[in-house]
C-alpha cells in the first residue's frame, strides 16, 4: 500500500485533525495579537517597559514547550480542558515576535514624519492610528508570520496533553512505530506552515509596495 493510498484511507481523520489544528493556531494567534500589539506599542512609547515586557516574553520562549504544557496542567480552569491549556501556552509562545516586531516597526518610523505630525497638531492617538501603525504594518505582519509558523509547529506537541490537532498522528505514530502515521501529521502541518508563511508574506509585500 502506497503512502498516498494510506493517506486516502484516513482522509476523514486527517481533515478533522487539520481543522482542529487550524482552530488551535487561529485562536492563539488572535489572542497573541490582541495582547502583543498593544504591548509592542507600550514598549515603543515607554522604553522603561522594554526590559520587563520583552524580558518576560523572552523567558516564556526559553521554557521547553512540553514542560510548559505540563506546568499549566494543575492550574484551575485552564487545566480542565486540554484545548484551553494548549491555547494559553501557544498564545504565550507567540507573544515575543509580535511584541518585538510591533515595537521595532513603530520605532523605525522616520522621526521627521512623527515630528511633522506632532507639529501640525495631530493628537497622540491620531499619530498612532494614521501614521505609526500603517508605517509599522509590514514589520508587524512579519512578526505575525514568524509567530504563526512557529505556533503551527509547537501546536503538534500540544497533542501530548490531549488537545487534538495534527500532533495526534505524530504521537500515535511514535507509539505504533509507524512512520506513515507520523507523516499523516507531519506533512499537513508542514503544508499549513508553508501556506501561512506564503499568505502573510504576500500581505506584507503588498502593503509595502502600496506606497
Amino acid at each position: 500500500m502506497s503512502l498516498l493510498e494510506f493517506f486516502y484511507r484516513h482522509r476523514q481523520e486527517i481533515m478533522t485533525l487539520t481543522l482542529e489544528h487550524c482552530w488551535l493556531v487561529g485562536v492563539s494567534m488572535l489572542l497573541a495579537s490582541a495582547a502583543g500589539i498593544p504591548l509592542g506599542i507600550l514598549v515603543a512609547r515607554h522604553p522603561k517597559w522594554n526590559k520587563p515586557v520583552l524580558g518576560s516574553a523572552n523567558v516564556i520562549q526559553t521554557i521547553p514547550s512540553l514542560a510548559l504544557f505540563g506546568f499549566l496542567l494543575p492550574v484551575p480552569w485552564l487545566g480542565e480542558r486540554a484545548d484551553r491549556l494548549a491555547i494559553t501556552a501557544l498564545t504565550a509562545y507567540a507573544l515575543l515576535p509580535i511584541i518585538r516586531n510591533t515595537a521595532a516597526g513603530i520605532e523605525s518610523v522616520d522621526p521627521s514624519v512623527r515630528e511633522a505630525a506632532r507639529g501640525m497638531g495631530l493628537t497622540a492617538r491620531q499619530i498612532l492610528v494614521q501614521v505609526e501603525l500603517p508605517l509599522a504594518l509590514s514589520v508587524i505582519l512579519a512578526g505575525l508570520r514568524v509567530a504563526t509558523v512557529m505556533t503551527i509547529g509547537i501546536a503538534t506537541i500540544a497533542a501530548a496533553i490531549g488537545s487534538g490537532g495534527l500532533g495526534e498522528f505524530i504521537f500515535r505514530g511514535l507509539a505504533m512505530v509507524d512512520n506513515r502515521v507520523i507523516l499523516e501529521g507531519a506533512i499537513p502541518a508542514a503544508l499549513l506552515a508553508l501556506v501561512a508563511d506564503a499568505a502573510l508574506g504576500l500581505a506584507e509585500r503588498r502593503w509595502r509596495r502600496s506606497f
Binding site: V113, A116, M120, F211
Partner: peptide, 14 residues
C-alpha cells in the same frame, strides 16, 4: 493655529 514646515519636509510616505 500655526502652520509648520520642517527642514526634512516630513511628508507621510503612505
Amino acid at each position: 493655529h500655526i502652520g509648520y514646515v520642517i527642514q526634512e519636509a516630513g511628508l507621510f510616505p503612505h
